[in-house]
């Protein structure tokens, strides 16, 4: 029963949470830059406007791909909040990502295909670490199932601190934050305009934004399950850790300039092997 409730809660409230998060993000970013910043509800105004605008469709396949992107992101999140298989959730989110890339490359425009190539590169950068996260959870708690991970006796982070840090590292890529916002960025006006989403307009752009909110909620959920164990107070600690992690993301976003793709790829693989694999080896050793 509780599983179904949490899935429904995710379906309904993930966009609310994701939107508020984006609003708070923009506010804090503005304050860090010495500006007043938009209202907290700004992302909602934006998305409602997008849905009321005319959608100029370059290629009708685009609509299909964008909807595929949204559906698989939601599927990923539902699986996660249902307490399902973590590995399957990661595979589903990769598929969703592929839909987005197909959407961008179907537009046959220079900026958007450059964006899709860079997105592929980013996937290459973060995928190893994502897999290590799933394996790490399995070794630490004996299960891929989220439901069992959060009811284990000790928090996963106790034995997987390296994997946790590695996950935080690639989270900057997933959140599309500087210095790793190569394929598209929250901040307008980069060298290839908006990259991935440059050819999307109106409703289709609104759908990608919505999917991004669902995705962010899921990604933050992963941070939380590193902390959560059978005790009730671990949930509060998890909340605090998630908030702190997101704040650090904003800080990094505002203090680092975008890097070139080689730095992105090398550094995230070094992190994946340095922190992730070593942590895995240590886990094998102590278990």
């Amino acid at each position: 029963m509780i599983k179904i409730v949490s899935t429904v809660l995710y379906l309904v409230f993930a966009p609310v949470f994701g939107g508020l998060l984006a609003g708070v993000d923009r506010k804090i970013t503005a304050r860090m830059q010495g500006r007043k910043g938009p209202p907290i509800l700004q992302p909602f105004y934006d998305i409602f406007k997008l849905f009321s605008k005319e959608a100029i469709v370059v290629d009708h396949l685009q609509n299909l791909f964008v909807i595929g992107y949204l559906v698989f992101i939601i599927f990923t999140g539902c699986l996660f909040f249902y307490g399902g298989d973590l590995l399957l959730a990661f595979f589903a989110i990769t598929l969703a990502e592929i839909f987005l890339i197909m959407c961008a490359s179907s537009a046959n425009s220079a900026y958007s295909s450059m964006g899709s190539q860079r997105e592929l590169l980013q996937m290459m950068a973060y995928e190893p670490m994502i897999l290590i996260v799933a394996i790490g959870f399995y070794i630490a708690t004996g299960s891929f199932s989220v439901g069992e991970i959060i009811t284990s006796q000790t928090s996963a982070i106790a034995t997987t601190p390296g994997i946790f840090l590695g996950y935080l590292y690639i989270l900057t890529i997933k959140f599309r934050k500087s210095p790793f916002d190569l394929s598209t960025s929250h901040h307008a006006h980069q060298e290839m305009v908006k990259g991935l989403t440059v050819e999307l307009s109106g409703r289709t752009l609104g759908i990608t934004e919505l999917a991004h909110w669902y995705e962010n909620t899921f990604l933050i959920g992963i941070i939380a399950i590193f902390i959560i164990n059978a005790t009730w107070w671990s949930w509060i600690v998890a909340l605090a850790v998630c908030a702190l992690a997101y704040f650090m993301e904003i800080l990094i976003d505002n203090t680092y300039a975008r890097v070139k793709w080689k730095v992105l790829l090398n550094s995230s693989w070094i992190v994946a092997f340095g922190l992730g694999i070593l942590n895995l080896l240590a886990l094998y050793y102590i278990k």
């Binding site: 500006r35 007043k36 910043g37 938009p38 209202p39 934006d46 307008a188 305009v193």
Partner: peptide, 8 residues
């Protein structure tokens, strides 16, 4: 940007 304006 306090009015929600973004230079796209």
């Amino acid at each position: 940007e306090r009015f929600g304006v973004i230079n796209t």
